[in-house]
Design a protein around this nucleic acid. Structure first.
Length: 570
RNA sequence: GCGCCUGUAGCUCAUUUGGAUAGAGCAUCGGAUUUCUAAUCCGAGGGUAGUAGGUUCGAGUCCUACCAGGCGUGCCA
């Protein structure tokens, strides 16, 4: 609808105002908050007045008079500073209902992103433990954003980057080995404190024990008293043999990835691609990328380490790529990973990171610019933390002590729908409070139920219709019977839906959809309370049922995007 | 110290890329059910948008300073 009006303005400007200069971007049309000002309004006159040396209001008047004859509008007016207000004719409004009933599941989809490939990388938590609630928000956000982009016609690949090549993995493996030896009652006295401690380490050790008995037992006597973790791990590795260490490593990573995947599955999040950091080492991309950086003067040697000149790209200081001990840093593989992303030729790359990673943006953006072709872009979106509450009590968490709530625990407790909806209710770069009690409650305080109930009520109307042995017959000529204030409000809301899909995708703000759903639900509940839908008069009844049917499609289509069910019955 | 983010009703948050009278929910108070699900609806009160300047037709939104909070600032991962 916005587009229709925009085009009308553009056409009239081109045709009737040849001496007026403007850009298409300057034609802005917005939904009016206040119905006094019509359904839509535009501020073009104010935007282009200055450039054309004329008064906004007089320009608005002129545009108004050349548009007011259009059959789309009941009335057009020009007001005070220079707004042009459009009162859309009722016939045009009813077209929305007709359109929805024709397009059904397709209503809301568009092809803005046609022929554009997008890579959305998200979660990417280290495979050293289960996903916890801190990952939940980014996971849901990334998944919903991906679906939203698909709704806009983009071709989307959802990718999880698995950090399986660094020191943290060695620590994981050592942790498993330690627990395993406790299980088989070895008299080796492990004592290292800084290892992973969660129950899942026991689970992996137990699985190892079940399948391999004591095959991985260390029989040699080794000195485990060294305070340095690198050396400590090296001794264990040597005593065990590299082959066995690698085997345990493989088993551990698989177990944890399986755990991660299953908790994602439970939340209806599915990745198209799992990219392993280790593959960058194995196929020599890492070395090649570092060579390239060296040859093109993006690095230098200092204190026996290789440094990346990230300061040139707005970073606070330069960063190490290869440490004195010859190990690469995370940054090194991250750069190689992004170089590979560029090679894979996506038009848009989106990274979704936790807000605590904001310090890395400039260095990764810098590296990306070095390798990027003109057309590809990298957008790094930050997702803020969510504080968990039980009622008024804050749930404290600390990764170090292993005292954290996993994503699985949260989903088990509040359900997938509430979990997703709550995470999506707020703008992603905004801190938020997540109240578990509220998410679990089944009353009006809980927005998930509020929305789902609105949908269920519509379904129950159709059930009742069937019980009464009546039928719903759609006839577009009936729609003019929709004259109640509440009905027109709902129609306006339905016609705004496609714009919401576009805006929320462009701004990367899926919370606009949850907001929209709450507003739509509110209007449905109001309407339901005030007016009977299954009235005796057949034409009116069918008109109202048409509206309900159309609304049902919008509930279901948007429900699919944010990934919550719309039950028929509650 | 420096850098990034945030600050809107008692609480949790919106505000459609700078628009017209800043809106919801919760909480508080008062009402609605012989009706398609009361998991609902209707009404009331509640605001110097952190503070102070600036930019312009117009600022919660953009700029500057200050105040407060969060995060970051390793040859960590």
């Amino acid at each position: 609808m916005k587009d229709i009006i925009k085009d009308l303005i553009k056409d009239t400007l081109k045709k009737n105002f040849k001496d007026v200069s403007f850009d298409y971007e300057q034609i802005e049309v917005n939904l009016c908050k206040n119905k006094k000002f019509g359904d839509y309004s535009s501020n073009v006159a104010m935007k282009i007045a200055k450039k054309n040396n004329s008064e906004p209001i007089s320009l608005a008047e002129k545009i108004k008079s050349s548009l007011e004859k259009s059959e789309q509008f009941e009335r057009v007016e020009a007001i005070k500073p220079g707004f042009i207000n459009f009162f859309v004719s009722e016939n045009l409004k009813f077209l929305v209902v007709e359109k929805i009933l024709r397009e059904k599941e397709q209503y809301g989809k568009n092809s803005i992103g046609k022929n554009s490939k997008v890579l959305v990388e998200f979660v990417s938590a280290n495979p050293t433990g289960p996903l916890h609630v801190g990952h939940g928000r980014g996971a849901v956000f990334g998944d919903c954003l991906s679906k939203l982009l698909e709704e806009n016609g983009y071709e989307v690949v959802k990718e999880y980057y698995v950090n399986d090549a660094g020191k943290q993995i060695e620590i994981l493996v050592t942790s498993v080995i330690q627990r395993y030896h406790e299980l088989i009652d070895s008299n080796l006295n492990f004592s290292y404190e800084d290892l992973y401690k969660g129950d899942y380490i026991w689970d992996i050790a137990a699985e190892l024990h079940r399948n391999f008995s004591s095959d991985f037992q260390i029989l040699n006597i080794i000195d485990l008293k060294d305070p340095k973790i690198d050396l400590y791990m090296q001794r264990i590795k040597d005593a065990l043999s590299i082959e066995k260490f690698l085997k345990i490593r493989e088993i551990s990573i698989n177990a944890i990835l399986e755990n991660i995947k299953s908790s994602l599955r439970q939340s209806d999040i599915n990745f198209d691609s799992w990219f392993f950091e280790s593959s960058l080492v194995d196929d020599n991309s890492l070395i090649k990328v570092i060579d390239f950086l060296n040859q093109n003067n993006y690095t230098y040697q200092r204190d026996n380490a290789l440094w990346f000149k990230s300061k040139d790209f707005g970073d606070e200081k330069d960063r190490v790529l290869i440490k004195e001990n010859k190990d690469h840093t995370y940054l090194a593989t991250d750069i190689a990973y992004h170089e590979k992303k560029i090679k894979r030729n996506f038009d848009i790359n989106i990274n979704i990171w936790g807000a605590d990673h904001h310090g890395y943006i400039s260095r990764i953006q810098g590296a990306f610019k070095i390798f990027a072709k003109e057309k590809s872009s990298l957008n790094i979106l930050l997702v803020q933390f969510a504080n968990l509450f039980r009622g008024k009590e804050k749930v404290s968490m600390s990764t170090r002590s292993g005292d954290f709530i996993t994503l699985k625990q949260l989903t088990d407790e509040v359900g997938k729908d509430a979990m997703r909806f709550f995470y999506l209710m707020r703008k992603s770069d905004q801190h938020m409070d997540f109240d578990i009690e509220l998410a679990k409650s089944s009353n009006s305080n809980n927005p998930v139920y509020y929305v789902q109930y609105a949908h269920a009520r519509i379904c129950s109307i159709f059930r009742k219709l069937k019980e009464d042995k009546k039928k719903f017959n759609y006839n577009k000529n009936n729609l003019k019977n929709l004259s109640k204030e509440e009905e027109l409000k709902i129609i306006n809301k339905l016609s705004a839906y496609p714009d919401i899909i576009i805006t929320s995708a462009n701004k990367y703000e899926p919370h606009l959809i949850t907001n929209y759903l709450r507003e739509l639900s509110q209007e449905i509940h109001s309407y339901y309370n005030k007016h009977q839908i299954l009235v005796e008069e057949e034409d009116l009844r069918n008109a109202r049922l048409s509206l309900m049917e159309a609304t049902k499609y919008v509930f279901e289509n948007s429900g699919k995007i944010i990934g919550i069910n719309m039950p028929d019955k509650m």
